[in-house]
Nucleic acid binder design. Structure first.
Lengths: 197, 197, 197, 197
DNA sequence: GATGAATGAGCTTTCATTCAT
DNA sequence: AATGAATGAAAGCTCATTCAT
């Protein structure tokens, strides 16, 4: 393997490890030494890969948004109705929340609430475009096919993402009486009813 | 005014000031001296009212939840359809977000994302029951009257609160092309369609 | 003693201790913990008095300049010839270098050579005016009385201060074969010859 | 070109680049990676040429002293009066300060004030002898010819070098109202008056 | 009740230097 | 000779909390 490849790999392993720690313990409670430790690498060397904790946080949201976006893209590319797509996206989201909870948690617990960190360099949707774009594609194609009502995109986006994020948050707080999976049908139906033409 | 009343008043002024600062600048970026300063009081004295920063944070979420709950209660007590109630709650939420943004922001930027702070003493809904209870009352009465579909409460709650929170977040990020008010109709309709029987 | 007086006293003791350490060991080699340690106080508390190491360095040069200026003022106020004043200032300077070497050293080893520290807030002569002003008074009155040649002030100032500073530097490097005191006559004569009308 | 010549050339280019960076940004603010970067070479390789940052600093002062000494030697070898030599040296010094400010600055801002660096290996005049020797030659020959007063060499040296260094410092601080060149006459006259027999 | 000086652990970040390749 | 990833000690600075007054 070339040196450059190795560096890329290490960079990604830092991203993943930091993502997990930030999500699990919070951005401020996670220290750079914590991350370096978890990676068996020195603090100094970590700084060779990311120049500051804030920059690391921003690269993570970009990375996460990219990964989630790619998953949704797979749904978008399927030749199925919007109603079915909604269900698939909800399933996918909850599957993620279960299997790689750190990604969804990062959105909710780090990105959402540390404006001071993301305000410089991640304004607007700059760092989450990978993800938002795919939701936009889903919505636009549904409107075009006449299956979904034509409304302001953000009105639909807020519903979709706020709803799913809210459910995962409630799950994280151990408030939900049932498993996330058992909500899939209700939620998909609610979203479809809200958005259908 | 009695000594006890005076103390109560001061306590509340601390709550309000801390609420504003935490919401505006983040929980960790706001220091106890910052709060004391803004109140023209000494750090030591502030500790006479709240024994720690974490306890202060928890009292704030209780206070905020209470205030928001009381507003929703006013809607609940009106003799109108669930459809109308939904619209009134959305209006109320956005009015709050505009006039006292610190309350909604506190939910989104402090409560939502500092589990380490709220995990001890605010488990589950312990500290937000004032607010959640009223949403529950709204929902149950709608189901009882046959206007809303009977489904798991949290499925409805997540929709309602995730959606509204999501919109306020998007607003805060300067992403929304229109004013929050201009989304009221769309959003109310979406929620109603999702929840109606 | 009042609280305010106490604080002033402590502030000055920090200034003096830091002055000694910076002069003896260099600005960068002296750490804030070093200073706090020498004062038997905590690092955090030291920061209650001076908000940063750079600010501390700037306050020290002001303080030092003030003290040196006051000494020269005493000479200026005496009713003696410029020739005699020159000798008295040289004596005074060397006496200082011997008894409170940290002051002269601070000029030479800290102020003179850490432009990055003093550039913001001590531009030009802002922080050494206490001292420079007195040299200016000495020179102007000598010119006025006709004893000194009328020339650009800085031409005279550079001679005076560069010369004395240079000698102290050479002394510090253990290069001088004789005691500083034994140079007083030669140096006073040289300066007088250079400046006389 | 032979391998050895190549190495010598590279060594000198490192010296020159480090000299510039140290002078411009200060010794501690300039990092080894900074220097390597400016030279388009690797840190590791730089260490093949100089075993430590301190050693590099010491080699620079030797190099600089040598270069300045050679310039003064040229003046010394001319068949002119001491008075004329003084003027030529002042001119030369100011020309240097203008055209290669890094050399003079290095004396003032690095050598003068980092005793901890130069104390081991550059004691006394060990590393500046190239320069000091030439000043000594100038002075001795002036005394021998009867044009200059016979006094302790360091008394004369301190005047000469302290004065010139002081003026360049004042220039660097943007304090001088006139160009350095315009001080040449005054300064030369002052020095001559101070030293003449 | 009120003050704010004092504590000190803990944070992010830097950088001279090494060494496997 | 040349590379640059890796090390880790140490720096400047912050801040929740305490306590003597």
């Amino acid at each position: 393997m070339s040196k450059i490849d190795k560096k890329k790999l290490k960079r990604e392993s830092i991203l993943k490890t930091a993502l997990k720690l930030f999500s699990a313990n919070g951005f401020h409670k996670t220290t750079i030494p914590d991350i370096a430790n978890a990676l068996n690498m020195s603090v100094g060397n970590l700084y060779n890969y990311f120049k500051s904790k804030d920059i690391l946080a921003k690269e993570i949201i970009k990375y996460t948004s990219e990964v989630l976006g790619q998953e949704i893209q797979k749904v978008n590319m399927q030749n199925i109705s919007s109603k079915e797509k909604i269900k698939k996206i909800v399933e996918l989201y909850f599957k993620m929340a279960k299997e790689k909870p750190e990604m969804i948690e990062y959105f909710l617990r780090v990105y959402l609430s540390h404006r001071e960190v993301f305000s410089d360099g991640c304004e607007g949707m700059l760092c989450v475009s990978g993800f938002v774009t795919e939701i936009m594609i889903f919505f636009d194609s549904g409107v075009e096919s006449g299956e979904l009502r034509d409304q302001d995109f953000f009105s639909a986006f807020g519903l979709f993402m706020g709803y799913l994020g809210g459910m995962v948050f409630l799950k994280g707080e151990n408030i939900l009486p049932k498993k996330l999976d058992e909500y899939i049908n209700d939620i998909s139906e609610n979203i479809y009813n809200a958005l259908k033409a």
